[in-house]
């Protein structure tokens, strides 16, 4: 396995941005409506996240460490605008616009990708993170839907179930080691 392939799988699984490195955890916990209706939003988020990671990763490598945060936040805000134009993040969440939910994962993923330090590795890790986020969004959408339909009392549904499920998935992913 080449270094690039290994990094792709690492980013997808053992550094999954939702289950293992957390930056997308809030978004995935509160946004997916159900398994079936999560596919299109997950694909949109995955695509926008991928290109924002590429852009942020490449530009931050070019401008250097001091200016890099300006690149991260600029790319994140542009990505949020794109997502809103694409029909996502338009609702409110707890009295504030849902766009706030996407800011942390967008910046966090760019920082993680930029840490690779080389273009081919930036592309591989961006691909892995985007695919990992897409998969996590679908999985949690399914878990959220299943927990809603169960006959258990309401207090045992949705958010705690999702977080406990994430813990179990993290436990499983910790077993994936590619070296």
């Amino acid at each position: 396995m080449t270094e690039t392939t290994r990094l792709f799988f690492d980013s997808l699984l053992i550094q999954n941005p939702v289950f293992m490195t957390f930056v997308g955890a809030l978004m995935v916990t509160v946004l997916p409506p159900s398994a079936r209706r999560s596919f299109t939003p997950a694909a949109r988020y995955g695509v926008v996240f991928f290109f924002s990671m590429l852009t942020g990763g490449v530009f931050s490598l070019a401008v250097g460490e001091l200016i890099a945060p300006v690149v991260y936040i600029s790319v994140a805000l542009i990505a949020i605008v794109l997502l809103r134009l694409w029909g996502e993040l338009r609702r409110d969440w707890l009295g504030m616009p849902a766009m706030v939910l996407a800011a942390a994962p967008l910046v966090g993923l760019q920082v993680m990708v930029a840490g690779q330090g080389e273009f081919s590795l930036v592309v591989a890790s961006a691909g892995g993170y985007a695919l990992g986020f897409f998969a996590a969004f679908l999985i949690i959408g399914g878990i959220r839907e299943a927990s809603r339909m169960t006959e258990a009392r309401d207090l045992f549904k949705t958010n705690p179930v999702i977080l406990f499920s994430m813990a179990l998935i993290a436990l499983a992913l910790a077993g994936f080691l590619f070296w």
Binding site: L155, P160, M166, A167
Partner: peptide, 17 residues
Amino acid sequence: SPVGAFIVPATVILLAR
């Protein structure tokens, strides 16, 4: 580890509920 990171807030939410 990440496992413990998820378990603690999940338990807090469950206990609050």
